[in-house]
Protein backbone atom coordinates (compact mmCIF):
# COMPACT_ATOMS: atom_id res chain seq x y z
CA UNK A 1 0.00 0.00 0.00
CA UNK A 2 2.71 2.38 1.04
CA UNK A 3 4.72 1.45 -2.01
CA UNK A 4 1.76 2.17 -4.24
CA UNK A 5 1.28 5.54 -2.58
CA UNK A 6 4.95 6.29 -3.09
CA UNK A 7 4.55 5.56 -6.76
CA UNK A 8 1.30 7.42 -7.44
CA UNK A 9 2.20 10.62 -5.60
CA UNK A 10 4.66 11.52 -8.33
CA UNK A 11 2.05 11.03 -11.02
CA UNK A 12 -0.63 13.42 -9.84
CA UNK A 13 -0.53 14.78 -6.32
CA UNK A 14 3.10 15.85 -6.39
CA UNK A 15 3.62 15.93 -10.12
CA UNK A 16 7.12 17.38 -10.47
CA UNK A 17 6.26 19.62 -13.40
CA UNK A 18 2.67 20.71 -12.94
CA UNK A 19 2.47 20.89 -9.14
CA UNK A 20 6.04 21.29 -7.87
CA UNK A 21 7.07 23.33 -10.94
CA UNK A 22 10.53 21.80 -11.25
CA UNK A 23 12.43 21.08 -14.43
CA UNK A 24 10.67 23.75 -16.44
CA UNK A 25 13.45 24.23 -19.00
CA UNK A 26 13.33 20.75 -20.59
CA UNK A 27 9.54 20.73 -20.27
CA UNK A 28 9.16 23.84 -22.38
CA UNK A 29 11.94 23.01 -24.79
CA UNK A 30 11.28 19.38 -25.66
CA UNK A 31 7.50 19.37 -25.75
CA UNK A 32 7.29 20.44 -29.39
CA UNK A 33 6.45 16.91 -30.51
CA UNK A 34 5.15 13.83 -28.74
CA UNK A 35 8.11 11.68 -29.77
CA UNK A 36 10.61 14.22 -28.37
CA UNK A 37 8.64 14.51 -25.16
CA UNK A 38 8.56 10.75 -24.61
CA UNK A 39 12.26 10.48 -25.41
CA UNK A 40 13.14 13.24 -22.95
CA UNK A 41 10.84 11.72 -20.32
CA UNK A 42 12.43 8.30 -20.71
CA UNK A 43 15.99 9.67 -20.59
CA UNK A 44 15.29 11.70 -17.46
CA UNK A 45 13.51 8.77 -15.81
CA UNK A 46 16.45 6.46 -16.39
CA UNK A 47 18.89 8.99 -14.95
CA UNK A 48 16.58 9.62 -12.00
CA UNK A 49 16.15 5.91 -11.30
CA UNK A 50 19.89 5.18 -11.42
CA UNK A 51 20.84 8.23 -9.35
CA UNK A 52 18.16 7.60 -6.74
CA UNK A 53 19.20 3.95 -6.33
CA UNK A 54 22.91 4.72 -6.04
CA UNK A 55 22.48 7.75 -3.80
CA UNK A 56 20.20 5.92 -1.42
CA UNK A 57 22.58 2.95 -1.34
CA UNK A 58 25.47 5.30 -0.53
CA UNK A 59 23.54 7.58 1.81
CA UNK A 60 25.50 6.40 4.85
CA UNK A 61 28.86 6.58 3.07
CA UNK A 62 28.65 10.08 1.59
CA UNK A 63 29.66 12.70 4.18
CA UNK A 64 26.91 15.21 4.73
CA UNK A 65 29.03 18.29 4.06
CA UNK A 66 30.09 17.31 0.55
CA UNK A 67 26.91 15.55 -0.49
CA UNK A 68 25.83 18.01 -3.19
CA UNK A 69 29.06 17.77 -5.24
CA UNK A 70 28.92 13.97 -4.85
CA UNK A 71 25.36 13.87 -6.14
CA UNK A 72 26.23 16.11 -9.06
CA UNK A 73 29.14 13.89 -10.10
CA UNK A 74 26.97 10.76 -9.84
CA UNK A 75 24.16 12.35 -11.83
CA UNK A 76 26.58 13.68 -14.46
CA UNK A 77 28.00 10.18 -14.82
CA UNK A 78 24.58 8.66 -15.46
CA UNK A 79 23.67 11.45 -17.86
CA UNK A 80 26.82 10.75 -19.86
CA UNK A 81 25.86 7.07 -20.05
CA UNK A 82 22.33 7.85 -21.22
CA UNK A 83 23.73 10.35 -23.73
CA UNK A 84 26.01 7.70 -25.23
CA UNK A 85 23.19 5.14 -25.36
CA UNK A 86 20.83 7.56 -27.11
CA UNK A 87 23.59 8.52 -29.58
CA UNK A 88 24.21 4.87 -30.37
CA UNK A 89 20.65 3.57 -30.60
CA UNK A 90 18.60 6.57 -31.69
CA UNK A 91 20.68 9.22 -33.45
CA UNK A 92 17.50 10.97 -34.63
CA UNK A 93 16.34 11.50 -31.05
CA UNK A 94 19.82 12.70 -30.10
CA UNK A 95 19.62 15.24 -32.91
CA UNK A 96 16.23 16.58 -31.87
CA UNK A 97 16.91 16.71 -28.13
CA UNK A 98 20.30 18.28 -28.78
CA UNK A 99 21.62 20.32 -25.90
CA UNK A 100 18.77 19.37 -23.58
CA UNK A 101 20.14 15.84 -23.22
CA UNK A 102 23.38 16.84 -21.39
CA UNK A 103 21.38 19.46 -19.53
CA UNK A 104 19.53 16.72 -17.63
CA UNK A 105 22.46 17.16 -15.21
CA UNK A 106 21.07 20.46 -14.01
CA UNK A 107 17.44 19.33 -14.03
CA UNK A 108 16.22 20.25 -10.56
CA UNK A 109 13.90 17.23 -10.37
CA UNK A 110 16.84 14.85 -10.17
CA UNK A 111 18.91 16.74 -7.62
CA UNK A 112 15.70 17.56 -5.77
CA UNK A 113 14.66 13.93 -5.40
CA UNK A 114 18.17 12.96 -4.31
CA UNK A 115 18.06 15.59 -1.62
CA UNK A 116 14.42 15.23 -0.59
CA UNK A 117 13.93 11.48 -0.81
CA UNK A 118 16.88 9.26 -1.71
CA UNK A 119 19.20 10.39 1.08
CA UNK A 120 16.57 9.61 3.71
CA UNK A 121 14.99 6.40 2.42
CA UNK A 122 15.95 2.86 1.50
CA UNK A 123 16.96 1.63 -1.93
CA UNK A 124 13.62 0.05 -2.86
CA UNK A 125 11.53 3.03 -1.79
CA UNK A 126 13.87 5.39 -3.60
CA UNK A 127 13.59 3.34 -6.79
CA UNK A 128 9.79 3.40 -6.56
CA UNK A 129 9.86 7.14 -5.90
CA UNK A 130 12.12 7.66 -8.92
CA UNK A 131 9.86 5.66 -11.23
CA UNK A 132 6.80 7.56 -9.98
CA UNK A 133 8.42 10.97 -10.35
CA UNK A 134 9.84 10.01 -13.75
CA UNK A 135 6.41 8.85 -14.89
CA UNK A 136 4.91 12.11 -13.63
CA UNK A 137 7.52 14.12 -15.54
CA UNK A 138 6.88 12.07 -18.68
CA UNK A 139 3.10 12.42 -18.28
CA UNK A 140 3.33 16.20 -18.00
CA UNK A 141 5.64 16.38 -21.01
CA UNK A 142 3.31 14.09 -22.95
CA UNK A 143 0.26 16.25 -22.15
CA UNK A 144 2.02 19.42 -23.22
CA UNK A 145 3.47 17.86 -26.34
CA UNK A 146 0.09 16.41 -27.34
CA UNK A 147 -1.55 19.82 -27.16
CA UNK A 148 1.32 21.57 -28.91
CA UNK A 149 1.74 19.02 -31.67
CA UNK A 150 -1.98 18.65 -32.42
CA UNK A 151 -2.66 22.38 -32.59
CA UNK A 152 0.71 23.53 -33.83
CA UNK A 153 1.42 20.92 -36.46
CA UNK A 154 -1.88 19.13 -36.98
CA UNK A 155 -0.25 15.78 -36.23
CA UNK A 156 -0.03 13.32 -33.36
CA UNK A 157 3.17 11.25 -33.17
CA UNK A 158 3.71 12.23 -36.79
CA UNK A 159 0.28 10.96 -37.94
CA UNK A 160 -1.73 13.64 -39.69
CA UNK A 161 -5.07 14.66 -38.26
CA UNK A 162 -7.52 15.44 -41.11
CA UNK A 163 -8.90 18.93 -40.50
CA UNK A 164 -6.24 20.32 -38.17
CA UNK A 165 -3.35 19.52 -40.51
CA UNK A 166 -4.62 22.14 -42.96
CA UNK A 167 -5.38 24.70 -40.29
CA UNK A 168 -2.48 24.41 -37.89
CA UNK A 169 -1.38 27.26 -35.64
CA UNK A 170 2.40 27.13 -36.08
CA UNK A 171 3.04 29.45 -33.14
CA UNK A 172 2.11 26.61 -30.78
CA UNK A 173 5.25 24.67 -31.65
CA UNK A 174 7.39 27.78 -31.35
CA UNK A 175 8.67 29.32 -28.12
CA UNK A 176 5.62 31.43 -27.16
CA UNK A 177 3.32 28.42 -27.53
CA UNK A 178 5.38 26.54 -24.96
CA UNK A 179 4.92 29.22 -22.30
CA UNK A 180 1.26 29.56 -23.23
CA UNK A 181 0.36 25.86 -23.01
CA UNK A 182 2.36 25.45 -19.79
CA UNK A 183 0.50 28.39 -18.24
CA UNK A 184 -2.87 26.96 -19.26
CA UNK A 185 -2.03 23.50 -17.90
CA UNK A 186 -0.94 24.87 -14.50
CA UNK A 187 -4.08 26.99 -14.38
CA UNK A 188 -6.14 23.87 -15.11
CA UNK A 189 -4.36 21.97 -12.33
CA UNK A 190 -5.04 24.88 -9.95
CA UNK A 191 -8.69 24.78 -10.91
CA UNK A 192 -9.31 21.05 -10.61
CA UNK A 193 -6.89 19.85 -7.95
CA UNK A 194 -8.90 19.08 -4.82
CA UNK A 195 -6.26 17.89 -2.39
CA UNK A 196 -3.43 20.33 -2.41
CA UNK A 197 -0.10 18.85 -1.43
CA UNK A 198 1.13 20.07 1.91
CA UNK A 199 3.48 22.94 1.42
CA UNK A 200 6.39 21.32 3.21
CA UNK A 201 6.34 18.46 0.75
CA UNK A 202 7.81 20.46 -2.04
CA UNK A 203 9.60 23.58 -3.06
CA UNK A 204 12.35 25.23 -1.20
CA UNK A 205 12.55 23.27 2.03
CA UNK A 206 13.77 20.29 0.09
CA UNK A 207 16.00 22.25 -2.22
CA UNK A 208 19.74 22.07 -1.58
CA UNK A 209 19.99 25.81 -2.03
CA UNK A 210 16.96 26.72 0.02
CA UNK A 211 18.65 29.26 2.20
CA UNK A 212 20.33 31.25 -0.51
CA UNK A 213 17.45 30.83 -2.84
CA UNK A 214 14.92 32.16 -0.37
CA UNK A 215 16.93 35.35 -0.06
CA UNK A 216 17.00 35.83 -3.77
CA UNK A 217 13.27 35.33 -3.93
CA UNK A 218 13.56 32.24 -6.10
CA UNK A 219 10.76 30.42 -4.34
CA UNK A 220 8.25 33.19 -4.83
CA UNK A 221 6.65 31.69 -7.88
CA UNK A 222 6.04 28.37 -6.15
CA UNK A 223 4.99 29.99 -2.91
CA UNK A 224 2.58 32.28 -4.68
CA UNK A 225 0.96 29.43 -6.52
CA UNK A 226 0.46 27.62 -3.23
CA UNK A 227 -0.84 30.66 -1.38
CA UNK A 228 -3.36 31.68 -3.97
CA UNK A 229 -5.23 28.42 -3.96
Amino acid sequence: MNTLKNFTKGLIKENPVLVLVLGTCPTLATSTSVINALGMGAAATIVLLCSNIVISALRKVIPNTVRIPCYIVLIAGFVTMVQMLVKAFSPALDESLGIYLPLIVVNCIILGRAEMFANKNGVFDSAVDAVGMGAGFTLALFLMATLREIFGNGTFCGIEIPVLADNHISIMTMAPGGFFVFGLLIAAVNKFAKNKPKKKDFGCQGCPQAEVCGKAGCNNAVKEAAEND
Binding site: A175, G177, G178, G183, I186, A187, A188, N190, A221, V222
Partner: peptide, 23 residues
Protein backbone atom coordinates in the same frame (compact mmCIF):
# COMPACT_ATOMS: atom_id res chain seq x y z
CA UNK B 1 -6.76 38.05 -12.76
CA UNK B 2 -9.08 34.99 -12.77
CA UNK B 3 -8.50 32.98 -9.60
CA UNK B 4 -6.97 29.87 -11.13
CA UNK B 5 -4.58 31.97 -13.23
CA UNK B 6 -3.11 33.81 -10.26
CA UNK B 7 0.59 33.41 -9.61
CA UNK B 8 2.54 31.22 -11.97
CA UNK B 9 0.02 30.65 -14.83
CA UNK B 10 -0.45 34.33 -15.62
CA UNK B 11 3.31 34.84 -15.39
CA UNK B 12 3.78 32.14 -18.01
CA UNK B 13 1.12 33.65 -20.29
CA UNK B 14 2.89 37.00 -19.96
CA UNK B 15 6.16 35.26 -20.81
CA UNK B 16 4.47 33.84 -23.91
CA UNK B 17 3.53 37.33 -25.09
CA UNK B 18 7.00 38.70 -24.30
CA UNK B 19 8.53 35.81 -26.22
CA UNK B 20 6.15 36.51 -29.12
CA UNK B 21 7.59 39.99 -29.39
CA UNK B 22 11.09 38.54 -29.63
CA UNK B 23 10.02 36.36 -32.58
Amino acid sequence: IPKSFKGLPITLIAAAITSLSFL
